[in-house]
Amino acid sequence: MTNNASQTLGILFQLCQSLLVVALAPLLTGWVNQCRAWLQNRSGAGLLQPYRTLRKLFHKDAVLAYNASPLFRITPYILFGCMWLAAAIIPIIAIDLPFSPAADVIALVGVFALARVFISLAAMDIGTAFGSLGARREMLVSFLAEPALLMVFFTSSLISHSTQLPHIVGTFAHHEFVLYPSLAFAGLAFVIVLLAENARIPVDNPSTHLELTMIHEAMILEYSARHLALVEWASNLKLLAYISIGIALFVPYGIAEVGNWGVLPLAIAALLVKLALAGAGLALLEALLAKMRIFRAPEFLGTAFLLAVLGLLIHFLLGA
């Protein structure tokens, strides 16, 4: 009975996390936008604005371009599925979830890459100039961000001797507190990757439709209604997934374990506090930084890669 019961418990926890994540993702984006509005001395649209946008978009009728292929139609679903899967694999409220062994950190990077390939293909599918412009820029940014992200993962994998996220989180959360200088480097690199991958300010500006600067917005220009809603929701989920990876790697304290219902409310509360802090920090970073020229982006991301490599080297030298 114990085996069966623990399996059921695991699935319950998994369901709990997956639903929570999908429900929370727009709220996080709303919170980041609200913080940014406050920092810019505006009153802001409110925390629930992303939900209202999603509802509005779902109620509209979708318009497709004449020459749109089936790829263009299915991409939003693939995108949303990839991000949801990623968010299910990452230990967000509990470790040892049944989905976690499905993919280690390297496969997780692969899941993000899959979503990226599809959105880029869909952007080029219609054949407008903006779509292919955005897709190319996205590829330019991501092919530099991906190795940096992998290096960040390798640093924490070296410390915990595993590429499985639950194992990494378990090592950091349950052992005695140790300062890891290599993780400080990895953390900095991760922040840069997070900014670049989620189309945040120094690399891309999420709130502009100015043709010269946009990357992410240029790719999704042709989408409307429920497709656009799914794409937006997927990018909210992506932001949440990235921040959760950051939390899992660098501040996993307070995470629950599967089957431990008593700790679950505490874990969720800790998660909410951490997400709120991370969102506010992100907004602060965006308020402080200026959008850089697109040709500066390789240098910016190169810095992330170098920092991550330095973290690895320091791990080898100091053993910490």
Binding site: P181, S182, F185, L310
Partner: peptide
């Protein structure tokens, strides 16, 4: 160790 890493950084 941490301060040394900061120095290098």
């Amino acid at each position: 160790n941490l301060l040394a890493s900061i120095l290098l950084l």
